[in-house]
Amino acid sequence: MHIQEELSQRHVLSLTVSNEAGILARIAGLFTARGYNIDSLTVADITDDHAISRITIVTGGPPKVIDQIIAQLDRLVPVHKVTDLTENGPFVERELALVKVAGTGEDRIEALRLADVFRAKVVDTTIGSFIFEITGTTEKIDNFVGLMRQIGLVEVGRTGVVGLIRGKEPN
């Protein structure tokens, strides 16, 4: 007998939650306990009084599983609202990355040229290295990092995705 894998779809979920101790563990733990995937997760408080946080989760699964994830998240007492941006779109999603690249001579110039194409900013430099700051979709950052890998990628730090529904209505 062999274990069979199911096909998976990428979804971006946006949650508002009470900003209280353990909330992140509650959400992350729900994903592990029920066998759901987290591709990325970001969290920060978003109100003046720091009472509410927004959590953006990129997850994957068949449609039925995505529905379950939303229903299960909604069941947690401190969760105010769960929005599936992928279902309720169109929406904007952005990720920020810091990309450290080392190299000299032609590699260094090529790195700068590519950074220009991707509208990445240089935020640190030494004689033998740059740190680029780049924002964009996950795909754009993947592409940029892929190119830098051929030039002399040292390391990458990424924030994970944040997203909002387009237009004037709240998520």
Binding site: K64, D67, Q68, A71, Q72, D74, R75
Partner: peptide, 11 residues
């Protein structure tokens, strides 16, 4: 009463 019970196993 629990929305997550609906369509969890049987549609």
């Amino acid at each position: 009463i629990d929305r997550s019970s609906i369509n969890k196993i049987v549609e």
